[in-house]
Computed example of a mutant assay.
Amino acid sequence: MEQVLVEEYRNETLECLHRGHICGVGPDGQVKYEVGDADFVAFLRSAGKPFQAIPGVRAGIKEAYELTDQEIAIMTASHRGESFHLETLSHLMDHTGLEQSNLVCAESYPMHRGSREQIIRNQGHEQRVYHNCSGKHFGVLSYCKLMGYPLEGYEDPGHPVQQEIVETLSMMAELPADQIARGTDGCGLPVFALPLKHIARAYLKLSCPELIEDEKTREAVQKITAAMHAHPEMVSGTNRICTTLMEDTNIIAKGGFKGIYGFSLRQEQLGFAFKIVDGSDEEWAHIVVSILEQIGYANQQTIHRIRERFPSAIRNDAGKIVGHTKEVFHL
């Protein structure tokens, strides 16, 4: 049931098709918009990070370790390893007493090209803190330390913190925990798969926490999303689509590897999730902006900013326009 979402043309000849599924839900959690199959099951990957941060913030890690909003925001991040990311991670380690050696994610170089090149020029080496998921890991470990849980094995699905994460996701997504499929993410932590309509419901509650019945969870979500809005660059990086969207305080957004994306709109009380089935993420911005345009989103500045930073023109390595991208789906 997947449908073509985006076409790519080189000159005027069709070169690539990107198929997928889109689901949008309203305040009652029911499907309001659908392209393809709203019941398509997709792994959340890094789009799950805001939910993985909830147990720790709910338990009081922000207050216990005197964490800043930057440090909370980077717990939801797929950071690029830019200088401000690394500075925040350093402060996070100082405040919590955690070290890189506590992390199970692999050593790597920053994903941000300039930062990576600078480290290599300075004869630096791969480190766990450079991994784009390190903020999430420090968030989970901070919670373990606060609760007295063992730090070793925090990645094990049977660890108390992982059990609480899946229970929290179950509540936010309105899906029984035993119906959430499990796997192992690239960073080593458990990752969860569920239908797009339930991902959209969970994202709706990030923008509309008043829909969350549990008071402590509601307060934690408010702290997390406030930090993401205050420091959107922490959640991804300079001029990334997540950053661009959350410069608009009406929107919460987070993408994940292999083409999954979730975002929600507070004033409109809408939650969206979509999956590009070939796993590409280059089309995220084009799909999001087309959704916003099709629903008549009022903030034209946001739409203009997306179109400006993520133009439809395809350029070659020398910067010459050689083709274009076209959104072709209809909600």
Rank of each mutant, 00 (worst) to 15 (best):
E99Q: 14
D317S: 13
V25S: 01
Q294K: 14
R182K: 12
P195A: 03
D39G: 15
P50C: 09
G262I: 08
M172A: 12
E215H: 11
G319Y: 05
M93N: 04
G81L: 12
P209N: 11
H91G: 11
L331Y: 04
K145T: 02
F274V: 08
E233K: 00
T225P: 03
G255V: 02
L67P: 03
I224G: 03
I199C: 00
Q301W: 05
A177K: 15
P209C: 12
P209H: 10
I61P: 01
V328H: 00
E282L: 10
A42G: 01
A73C: 06
Y297W: 06
L44E: 03
R113E: 14
V166Q: 11
L98R: 09
E126H: 01
S46P: 02
Y9W: 13
L86G: 02
G29R: 09
G237K: 12
H112Y: 14
E247W: 04
A106F: 14
L175A: 07
T244E: 08
G124V: 07
Q118M: 15
P160T: 04
E82A: 07
S78H: 07
I120Q: 14
G148W: 11
A47Y: 01
E164S: 04
Q70T: 01
T96D: 01
R128S: 13
G279A: 03
M111G: 02
V35W: 06
R218W: 07
N11Y: 14
K320D: 05
G158K: 15
C144M: 10
R80A: 10
V4L: 04
K254R: 09
F51G: 01
Y9I: 14
F257G: 05
I180P: 02
A53P: 03
D94T: 08
K216H: 14
S101V: 03
P160W: 05
Q269D: 10
G48C: 06
Q100D: 15
L151A: 11
I321K: 11
E327Q: 13
G29Q: 13
F84V: 06
A47Q: 00
V166E: 07
A273Y: 05
I199G: 00
K197V: 03
R121Y: 11
Y154Q: 05
E164D: 15
K216R: 15
M75Q: 07
P160D: 03
G56T: 02
N239W: 08
I74G: 03
T225C: 09
I74P: 01
L331R: 04
A220K: 08
T243V: 01
G20Q: 03
K258L: 10
I119T: 12
D94C: 04
A38G: 13
A230I: 00
C242E: 13
F51Y: 13
A181F: 08
E210H: 14
H95E: 10
D156E: 12
S101D: 15
F138I: 13
